[in-house]
Structures are given as structure tokens and as C-alpha cells.
Nucleic acid binder design. Structure first.
Lengths: 345, 345
DNA sequence: TTGTATGCGTTATCAG
DNA sequence: CTGATAACGCATACAA
């Protein structure tokens, strides 16, 4: 076990310069945009670099330029359809913008978000996008102090200097209540989760408020985490008794799909004939033929553009970044009974 | 627009040292594992660091230690359930191992994989995991030369020095054929995609070989990319005529679910009574009550462990890394007609 | 245990 | 357009 610590003969600008017969500066300039190099020098350098397999060290470059090119994506529940779609869109958009995504998979609680943000600082990320969870205030100011850009998704809190992109949960939830009222539903199950996320409670509360105003009865229920299984559990719990509701507003599509499956396969209910369901998010599965869930769309590409806008704006992060509120458009499919009145309209 | 280039007063070890009344080295030692610092010095440093909001610059650290702590994950179709699950597991495992994931979302073709690997080199990633797509040989050797660890997922090619973790596609496909034969199926649709991925064609070919051997008729079909929509399209194409098959082996769950939905809702077929379907992957949706798809599981956590093993093994990447073949366990659900004979066993 | 000096690979500055 | 030189922030060999 005589560990021979053999330092890899690393290939750097120096070596390329020697092989090309030019100075290190020439090599550097060849690889920096907008630097002035003569075509022949550039050519010699490129040839030498290719031969040696040289690649600019972004760690060193970031060190001197004080810009790493790294943007951190902090999320929890990456495997979930909506989060996965966001990650997909964001990583792509970042690459198109010449940045690179570092993803931090965190539990979502404040301490793990803080941990993630520390890592973010360690790698001198130019920006961090918090897809889920809420960061403690202290670390937020530290990030800001270090010149890091911060974007929060679906957080109500307005913090000086940090960007915000939010879905209009309240508006959509109100629409959902009106939708079900028009369909002639009277007793509405409101199925949410124990996660207690800001958007989720916003949807739940806004829906209940509006439904009450419209004279509807609401039955809130939270069976567990935000998942298919919890939705199914809620259905079994709510639909077992005699005095069952006639519709459900699920704060998430995943909950809605679980709810639908349990309602149909365990309880034998017909949707939408005997029971109406409205979801939220418009994940891919909501459009599948087995569900045809009418829901409210989180416009992923629009959210991504907004986030990119927040990241890209003025390099020096002074001045308040305007927070963006994005509408969640209703997607009409076939899980809600359509009343004759609505058909006319 | 007089852009005042105000260089942020960056907080570094120097500043912490001054505030703590010690040397820069003391600060450095405080933050490096296994360095010798007296408790009181350490305490002073920690206090000063907290007050200043100091965070070790991993870019600089990586520069001098020649280890960045970065592992790159190269994937395409991140929004897809299986890929998302892999990303979820990998990011978590990497964090537990003290590394951090950089994700490169690439189109999957060789040139974009090569582009991604270049980026990987730029950031001096310690390892790269290629979840999808095949890298050109030249860039592979460059990565290896630069001391970067390489792990390929579900690639048949054995390359000297690069790790491989694969699902036993052939074995599972053979099992699938036997499964459908025992169920009494005779004409089997083999639905695949136009992607032409190594694993996919391996499954398709192995299935056809085994099915033929068992005296079954096979009807290969490829409607488009590996998606729900393609599966549905295949169903509509294959089940329209009079001489329809009585079962389908879909090389991916996503294809299978689309196939099932179209078969049931567009063609009115009953599954499994009138038609049997077998999938591959065991994505979450396969277990949903509307589908209950019998399929073969890609054991995500096991795959993740294998990959982590490949990454973690011997720092200096000499010697061939043993490639790992992971079994895909059959998951029996309810999309395959069960014959009496099988019930006895 | 602590401090000093050196180097990691790069780019910005400046003189030619 | 080119080359020499000084940083960037950090870890470590060495001397104390």
C-alpha cells in the first residue's frame, strides 16, 4: 500500500503556450471572448490546445473574474413531475445563457435550506434559485452581501433585494371555487397535504374563502405529504361515510390523481358524472386519458423565463427586483361536470 | 449610465485572520479537516468568520488541492419520471458523500454529450456520470487523461478505464417473453421508440429473439420518441386492424401507459382480460390504480449505489473498473392475464 | 501549535 | 497585437 502520490501532469495555459511558441497571455486571450488575437496566433494556440487536450480551468477563471458561471438550484422532491419539469427547463435555460446549474437536493426545512445556501456561497454561485423551502433571514442577507443573486419561487414574503416569482394561487383558487359552483356542486372536499407549503395553504385558504362566499360547504382534509398516496387516502377517508361531498379541489395534481383513482377504483364513483375533481399544476399525467383532469397550469416555461430575468438583471444587485406574479391558466378537461349553462357560454 | 465598477469588498481568509488576530494559515487550518489548531484559536477564528459571514472559497480550494468536489451528471429528458428519480437519488447520495452535483441537460446526441463533457473538464469535475447518450471516444480519453472518473449508465460498450453500470436488459426481456407465453399470448406487439438507445434496442431484440424461440409471433412498432404519446400512437396503429395482437411488450413504462390508455379508451379493449401489457422501468405511475402495470424494475437506489461505488473507488484512476450488471426484478401487477397454470405455481 | 513564504491556473493591466 | 507581471483566495512545506 505504498501510495505513490503521483501528481497528474496537469495541462495548463503554460504548456499550451510552450507548444504553440507563444506567451501564456496569448493562450488566455484566445479563450476569452472579445480579446484581440491575430488569426495566426489564435490558430497556433487552438492547434496546440487540441493536441494537448487543454480546457480552460473555470475554477481559476472564476477566481480572478469573480464570477463562477454557476447558478445553484435548491429544490426538494426532485423526482416529482412538476419539480422535474422546472429543473429541466431551468438547466436548459441556464446553459443557453452560458451558465451552469448546480443542484442541491434539500429536505425543504429551513436548516437544510440554510445548509444548501452555505454551499452556494462556498462555490461562489452567481445566483441561487430556491424552488422549494424557505431560507432563514440571516443567511439571505449573507448571500446578498456576497453579491449573490437570490430568487424565490412561490414565496409570499417580500424581502428587500431578493427576486420573487410566484403563481397567482389566490386567483386560481377563486376560479376553481367558481368553476365548481357553476357545475352545481355543493359540498366540496378541499384536499391538501401536511407539508404546509406557502403556496399550498394559499390555495387552500383562498378556495375555502371564495367557496364559502359562494354558499358552498367545504371539507378540508390532509392525509399526509403531497403525493398520489395522500390523495388516495383522502378519498377513502372522505368518501366512505354517507354524507359524502360531491366534488374535490385538490391543491396539487398528484393529490388529485390519487384521489381520482381511489374514488373510482376503491369507491366505484363515476367522474365527472357523480363527482367532480379539480387539480393544480397541470403535470403531464393530468392530461393522460385515464384522468383528463381539469386543472390550473403552472406555466413552466414562463416561470423559467421570469427566473432567468431575475437572475440576469443588473449584475450589481442594488435596487429592488420587481417581483413577478404569474397567472395560472385553467385547463379544461373532463373531470368536472359541465352544467348546461356553462356549455352555452 | 456611468457604470461605477464597484468591486464588492470580498470577505476572505485574510480579513477573518485580521479580525481574529491570527494568521491566514490559522484560518485555513480551522476549516480543513484534520489540521491541528488549538481550541482557542479555532474558536476565535470561528467567531470572526461568523461575524463576517465568511465562507471558504471552494473554487480556490479546488485549485490548490486539485479536487473540486464537483460531480457532473449528464442527462437528457430530465423531466421524465425515471431520469428524475435517478437525479433525485444521485444528488442526494453525492451530497451525503461530501460532493456536489452539477447537472448538464443535453440533447443526447454525441456532439452535445461531447459539449457537456468539455464543460465537465472546464470545471475540473472529479467525475462525470452519463445517464443518457454516448460520448465520442476521443473526449472520453481526454477526460480519463485529466484524471476524471467516468461512469456510463446502460451502455454496452466496455471502454478501458471507464466504469459501467447496466441493467440486465436481455435477461429481463427474456423473462418478459416467457411471462407472456405462459399467459397464453400468441401475437405480441413489441413497442419501442425511434430513439434507438442501446438499452431500448437491447430489450427489443432480446425479447424478439426469445419470443421467436418460444414460438410466438412478434410485431415490432416504433411510433416516435420514448413517450406516453408514442405508446398511445402505437396502440392505435397496431390495434386498429382485424388481425390484432393479443399482448404488448413495451420497452418503457411511459410507452406502456400510453399504450394502455389508448387501448382502453380509444379501442375499448379490456386489460388484462382481452389484452396483456408488460412494461419496463417501474416508474411511479406504473403502480397507480388506473394502470397496475406489471413491469421490470430499474432499482434506482441500487443503481445509485453502484454509481457511487464507481466514483468513489481508487482516487487515481488506473486499473479497470469492474462493470456492474444489475438485475431488473419483475414486478407483478395486473396488466397481464394470469393463466391457471401460473396460479398453481 | 503557529506564522511565513510559495504556488495552484487564470485574467487584467500595462508597456512595448 | 504581444509579452511580462501582479493579483485572485486558498493550502501547505518549512522554519520557528
Amino acid at each position: 500500500m505504498t501510495a505513490v502520490v503521483r501528481r497528474k501532469p496537469t495541462v495548463n495555459a503554460q504548456k499550451v503556450a510552450e507548444k504553440a511558441g507563444v506567451s501564456r497571455s496569448a493562450v488566455s486571450r484566445t479563450f476569452t471572448d472579445g480579446a484581440s488575437v491575430s488569426p495566426e496566433t489564435r490558430d497556433k494556440v487552438l492547434r496546440a490546445a487540441a493536441a494537448l487536450g487543454y480546457h480552460v480551468n473555470h475554477l481559476a477563471r472564476g477566481l480572478i473574474r469573480n464570477e463562477s458561471g454557476i447558478v445553484c438550484l435548491i429544490a426538494s422532491g426532485i423526482g416529482t413531475p412538476l419539480q422535474a419539469a422546472m429543473l429541466d427547463g431551468l438547466t436548459l435555460a441556464l446553459q443557453d445563457a452560458g451558465r451552469i446549474a448546480m443542484v442541491l437536493n434539500c429536505a425543504g426545512d429551513p436548516v437544510s435550506v440554510e445548509h444548501a445556501l452555505r454551499m452556494t456561497l462556498n462555490y461562489r454561485a452567481e445566483a441561487s434559485v430556491i424552488l422549494s423551502g424557505s431560507p432563514p433571514a440571516s443567511i439571505v442577507t449573507t448571500c446578498l452581501d456576497n453579491g449573490q443573486r437570490l430568487v424565490l419561487l412561490n414565496r409570499s414574503e417580500q424581502i428587500e433585494g431578493v427576486g420573487t416569482v410566484s403563481i397567482d394561487n389566490e386567483g386560481a383558487a377563486r376560479d376553481a371555487a367558481a368553476m365548481l359552483a357553476r357545475a352545481g356542486c355543493r359540498r366540496i372536499a378541499v384536499v391538501s397535504s401536511t407539508a404546509g407549503t406557502a403556496s399550498l395553504v394559499a390555495r387552500e385558504e383562498a378556495f375555502i374563502r371564495e367557496a364559502t362566499k359562494l354558499g358552498l360547504e367545504t371539507l378540508p382534509h390532509r392525509a399526509g405529504p403531497t403525493s398520489y398516496a395522500s390523495g388516495a387516502a383522502s378519498a377513502r377517508a372522505l368518501l366512505a361515510g354517507a354524507d359524502r361531498p360531491d366534488a374535490a379541489f385538490c391543491v396539487t395534481d398528484l393529490l388529485a390523481l390519487g384521489f381520482m383513482d381511489a374514488a373510482r377504483h376503491d369507491l366505484g364513483l363515476r367522474i365527472p358524472e357523480a363527482f367532480s375533481v379539480v387539480g393544480f399544476d397541470d403535470i403531464e399525467q393530468a392530461g393522460w386519458a385515464s384522468y383528463e383532469l381539469t386543472t390550473f397550469r403552472q406555466p413552466v416555461s414562463e416561470l423559467v423565463s421570469c427566473i432567468m430575468g431575475q437572475i440576469g438583471s443588473s449584475t450589481e444587485g442594488v435596487g429592488p427586483v420587481p417581483s413577478r406574479l404569474v397567472k395560472a391558466e385553467p385547463i379544461w378537461r373532463r373531470s368536472v361536470r359541465v352544467s348546461p349553462a356553462l356549455k352555452d357560454a
